[in-house]
């Protein structure tokens, strides 16, 4: 047991470096997917048939391709077209794009849940579409969208391990590297799993808290 702990202590700093990158990838792709998801969602509910079509087509394509293939495409294929990205950039952009499709569906549901009467009332006091989105729809949609948003962040945290396949040295990748040089698979991957749990569990509690808080109002 003491041997086990000693080895854990030895791997710990390396794995923590991986945790840092995992957090960077997760936060980066949460940010990117939220912004893009909001754009797709607003396009999906717009009056323009063209914008709705673009949004629907994009979402359909993204949801139909495995995330890992999207990552390979961005990291290995784009350079052939003259777009060179670092592994980290490619990872964040890939996950961000992939998750923007799921976020868009969340946001759209939130936007469409707002009663049409309120939108008419807003029009009747002279508010323009942009003002209505900002002052009437989004503040209310945020409350509806928060709990599923929390779940999305947890899924993104776990799926950030996918960027290990394009050489980003995040937690899973660091684990693989240590394990392949030490053959101490049990210690390494137990630590890796515990570190993911340590990040995911607080998020789960936060999401449950939000669900309870907004369920009544």
């Amino acid at each position: 047991m003491s041997d086990y702990l000693a080895r854990s202590a030895q791997y710990f700093p390396l794995l923590l470096e991986g945790v840092t990158l995992t957090i960077v990838v997760t936060l980066g792709s949460v940010f990117l997917s939220s912004i893009l998801g909001l754009v797709w969602a607003i396009m999906a509910v717009s009056k323009s048939r063209i914008l709705r079509g673009i949004s629907r087509t994009f979402i359909t394509i993204i949801r139909g391709i495995p995330i890992i293939v999207q990552l390979f495409y961005i990291y290995f294929v784009l350079p052939e077209l003259g777009v060179n990205l670092t592994a980290l950039q490619a990872g964040i952009i890939g996950l961000g794009l992939a998750y923007s499709a799921y976020q868009a569906e969340n946001f759209r549901a939130g936007i469409e849940a707002i009663d049409k009467g309120q939108i008419e009332a807003a029009h009747s006091i002279g508010m323009t579409d942009g003002l209505i989105m900002r002052r009437v729809i989004l503040p209310q949609a945020v409350r509806i969208v928060l709990p599923p948003f929390g779940n999305t962040i947890i899924m993104l945290l776990k799926d950030s391990s996918l960027v290990s396949t394009i050489t980003v040295a995040e937690l899973t990748r660091q684990g693989q590297l240590i394990a392949s040089s030490t053959f101490d698979n049990m210690t390494v991957f137990t630590l890796v799993a515990l570190m993911y749990l340590a990040m995911a569990v607080p998020l789960t509690f936060l999401t449950r808290h939000l669900e309870k808080r907004y369920a009544t109002s």
């Binding site: 009467g117 009332a121 009747s124 006091i125 002279g126 209310q140």
Partner: peptide
């Protein structure tokens, strides 16, 4: 928009902003 700022409307279901 200009017309609506001068011509208000009151609805059957009130349509207040609940937030």
């Amino acid at each position: 928009v200009n017309v609506r700022t001068q011509l208000s409307m009151v609805f059957q279901r009130f349509n207040l902003f609940p937030h």
